[in-house]
Design a protein around this nucleic acid. Structure first.
Lengths: 155, 155
DNA sequence: TTTCATGCAACAAGCAAAGTTTCATGTCTT
DNA sequence: AAGACATGAAACTTTGCTTGTTGCATGAAA
């Protein structure tokens, strides 16, 4: 249903990096989320700019976390991946000369801004570690050590 | 910024219909929101199915409100235009075999569903009449009777 | 110097809403 | 009955944004 997968994918990646691989190349990461290394670099660049991960070039290089997951909030990740628009609905960008449309736009705008503020506040309260623990809880229950990054090559 | 304009546009149309035109053809309505008559019919069809407006074919036909604006909530309009996805972000639709991704998806899903519930509840509390009164308040302040449906022909 | 990695730019593909064209159906007027 | 006017519905095109892909430059280790 949604169109922007970056937040979801980045969370997925960060947890794998913390729990399973420590340092990973874009190539390896791209296999975790079934995509292309370039897409990974594009996403990771924003995280690096925010100081959540670091990258090293050259032989033996790759990506690495710079803090533990309990110091990374969903908000950090959301902004790291470029703070894409939260909502799919809303008024047109350019304001109209029609006072009716202006009133509609104002009302819709404030209502959505309110919802956005509340949701981002929620994002502030959730750490990636919280989500990682959800994962481990489930792992304990099912007994299978199923993870996605294992083995399977590209193409 | 948003991609789905139907809620915004429909509100705009309903207020004009109540305050200015009473009965309007798709052609006239399409001029209000600067679009095509077919786009209007597509949007209005859902509103008709929900009993908010009625349509009549043939000479002298067109669209008409079946209730006053204070009996139409934003929620009604949102659902009338097809209840498009509220959010632009979120997890992939198909569930993964990777337990990490599953945990991420669950967490994101519940968080967004929560926000969705709150926003729709907010939509329940706002009537189109409320928005129409915003418009008239503004009208009183600026003294200009500016509206969009006046005069200007297509192309 | 070769190999492996990121960095960056440009372009193609996929998807959903919006826009458009065309024709059928129904209704009022003359 | 004929003509004008309106919705109804289907098919297709356009648009905007994310994602996917290719190519090349840059930097670091072997």
């Amino acid at each position: 249903m949604p169109r922007d997968l970056r937040l979801s994918r980045m969370l997925h990646v960060l947890i794998h990096m913390d729990r399973h691989v420590e340092r990973a190349t874009s190539e390896q990461i791209s296999r975790m989320i079934a995509t292309n290394p370039v897409v990974v670099r594009r996403m990771m660049a924003g995280m690096r700019d925010r100081g959540v991960v670091m990258s090293e070039k050259g032989h033996g290089g790759g990506w690495q976390l710079t803090r533990s997951l309990d110091k990374i909030s969903l908000r950090d990740v959301y902004e790291g991946v470029g703070a894409p628009p939260l909502f799919n609905i809303g008024p047109e960008a350019e304001l109209s000369f029609c006072l009716v449309e202006q009133a509609v736009d104002r009302r819709l705008d404030t209502t959505l801004k309110d919802a956005e503020t509340r949701l981002l506040a929620q994002f502030d309260t959730i750490t990636v570690e919280d989500v990682a623990e959800d994962f481990e809880q489930q792992l304990k229950t099912t007994e299978r050590g199923t993870s996605c990054s294992a083995g399977s090559g590209p193409t």
